[in-house]
Structure formats: C-alpha cells, structure tokens
Write a protein that binds this DNA or RNA. Structure first.
Lengths: 193, 193
DNA sequence: CCCATTTTGGACCGATCGGTCCATATTCTC
DNA sequence: GAGAATATGGACCGATCGGTCCAAAATGGG
C-alpha cells in the first residue's frame, strides 16, 4: 500500500558508502550524498535518518563485507601462508596512479572519527577484532600444517598482521613507491618463518 | 614601524597546529582556529593567508619537529635496537583513556587529505622519506655494532619500521587494548633479530 | 472511485561556512 | 604633532551547511 519507493535502498546505501569512503565523513556534504544516491532530501531523511545514521549504516556494511571476504579466504582452505601474502599484497597492488586511493574505510574512520565518536569507535573496534580473529584462525591452521613457524604465538602474529595491514593502508594512501611497499610486505611476511 | 603585532606568530601557529591535529582539517572551522589562536579574522588572514595555508604551515612545522626529534635520538648514540624499541613504544604508551588520541598528524593527513590534495601529499611524502632515512641510518649503525642482525637489509627494515609505526598510530587512534599493542611491538621488533 | 497510506520534490529554516573589506587603533619617523 | 605604515575589530558577503516541513503524487484496499 502507499506510493512505492522509487529507489533501491541497498544500492543507495552502497553509493553513500562510496562517497564517504572517497571523501571522508566531514568533507562529504548532504548534496554530495543526494547527488550520488539519486534521491531527494525527504527520501534520504525518511529512510536513513541523518547523515550520521547513513554513515554508520555504510560503515557497518563495509565492515561486514570485508570480514566476509576474509572469512571466505580463510575457509577456502588454501595454504595459510600464501593466503596471508595475497591479503597483504592486495592492499598495495592498486596501480599508483589509479583512482581515488580510498584505502580502507575502517582505517579512515579510525583516524578521522574514532577518537571523538563513540559509535564509530565501537564499529571500528568490532571490525578490527573480527579481522584479528580470522587471522588468528588462519595462522593457527598454518602452524598446524607447518607453513607458519611457531616462533611467535598465533595471537601475537594475528595482532601483528592487523597492525601491518593498517600500516600498508596508510602507505597506500600516501602513494608510496611500489618498490618500497614490496620491501615492506616481504619483511612483514618474514615474521611467519 | 607601524602598529606592533599583538600576538606571537610562532605560538599562534602552534595553537593552530594543535587544533588541526586534534580535529582534522575539514572538521576544523575558522572559528575554532580564531578561538584557539586568540586573534581576529583580519589578523589571521593577514599573516596566514587562508585556512589551507595555515594548515600547510602547521603540517610542515609538525613534520620538521618530528624529524628533528628522531634525528636527535639517532645522534644520541645509544643502542640502536633499544632506541627503535623506545620509538615504537612511545606511540602506544599514552594511557588509553588519556586525552584526544591525536595520533600522528602526518598519518592523519595521509588518510584524510593526501589522496586529494597534492600539496599535502608532498609534505606527507617528505616526512615519510625523512623518517625512513633516519631509521635507515640507525639500523645500519645497529647492524655494524651487532645489535641488529643482517637477516634483512637496512633499507627494507627502515621501510618496514615506518610502516609498522604508521600501523601503531592507527591502532592507538582506535584505542586498542594495551596487551594487544604490546604483542604487536614485540613481534615487530623480532624482525631485528 | 475514494480514501488511507506512503513517497517525493522542493521550498524553507537558522546557523555556519571561508573570506573580504574598511574604519579605527597603534606605532614609528620626521 | 603630522603623516606614513602596520595591525586590529568587526561588519558584511554570498554560499553552503544539515535538517524540517508540507503539499503533491502515486499506490493498494474497500
């Protein structure tokens, strides 16, 4: 009953996600959002509540997706050591000149908003926790299978990798040269030997 | 000749730096700046040109200071390995509840602005380059003295440490728990053995 | 076909944005 | 103390900020 919605809510949220991801929260205006989402102000406020609400929805969707992606990787059953390498390299392999260098939305939010916005802080923490957990599982498996040494315990290695990954996200945003990033990944991975 | 300035330009810039560092560029309004710096709009625009100009001046001052600090550390002649550990721990040792979790302004800018602002990108690159260079010197010395192994070459280790440091800055902003950060630092440092 | 229900476009809101401008205030030189 | 030079306070600018509101439009059920 009632007038039917003229837009796809999922798609609209994805477009909002893309804008926030590219420009950051503060630098994104309502007009930016409405233009990208292709809906009117009243529809936006009806369905998303506020700029901040929409942002939180987008951030949570982003986190869930990233976690699901890593989860699928972990469950794929490939060589743990190799899967970790692929995960690290995927961060730096976007060609230097390419596009917006959006980086990782969670890292972006950790930097821009987490210190002052408890809601964002919670979402960021949750994402990092889940990433750490998945890496932990992956590393434990790698250690059982022998591809990863027991020099460090799995928990420490998981935390270490999350940290390294966040560092790489920053390096990629700063557009560091490819050779340097390659050195970094190689050195990071040596901790698994 | 002419009416004398009523404020200290260095001090005013430092106050602006503090605001940008705490709130980020976009979230800092002119009013925020004027309040913190204690000067009028006309004085601000007379001496700093624009919000963006003032920001760049603050960012460069910050970078120079951080580089000078690390340089002093490197030149202090202490045990290289130990100096590196201190440098890493200094990032995470601010009590979790304390203050604003401002992190590192260069990392903040790399994330918020570098992808879209060439001037910022240049300043960030310069800072990271100089940090890498100082770490390189420190590591090379540590390898000569024997406190750091030759398992990795000094250049790669320097880049690896810059990356790790940026990761820790993100973790600190996200207010990760102390135990986890400690694990990370320990694991990072193992690369020097 | 009419009404209840829901969505939509867009006018409108006060506040604030970064920035300009100028009259006034304060100094120094002569 | 007159006049050149510089600094300051604050009025003022158009644009934009995030958000509200309501009349018009579009649907389904009766």
């Amino acid at each position: 009953m009632g007038r039917p919605r003229e837009f796809n809510a999922d798609e609209a949220l994805d477009r909002a996600l893309h804008v926030f991801w590219t420009k950051g929260y503060a630098a994104t205006s309502m007009q930016d959002l409405l233009d990208a989402m292709g809906l009117s102000k009243s529809s936006f406020y009806e369905f998303f509540g506020s700029k901040h609400d929409a942002f939180m929805a987008a951030l949570r969707r982003y986190g869930d997706r990233e976690v699901a992606r890593l989860d699928a990787t972990v469950c794929s059953g490939g060589c743990a050591r190799r899967l970790i390498e692929v995960q690290l390299r995927s961060v730096i392999e976007r060609p230097s000149g390419e596009g917006d260098r959006r980086g990782c939305l969670t890292v972006n939010c950790a930097v821009e908003l987490a210190p002052h916005d408890p809601t964002v802080h919670t979402a960021v923490s949750s994402h990092l926790d889940r990433m750490e957990e998945l890496f932990h599982r992956l590393i434990a498996r790698g250690q059982e299978e022998g591809g990863i040494s027991h020099r460090h315990d799995a928990r420490s290695l998981a935390r270490y990798l999350v940290n390294a990954l966040c560092g790489l996200q920053v390096m990629a945003k700063a557009d560091r040269n490819t050779q340097a990033l390659d050195d970094v990944v190689t050195t990071i991975l040596a901790a698994l030997d």
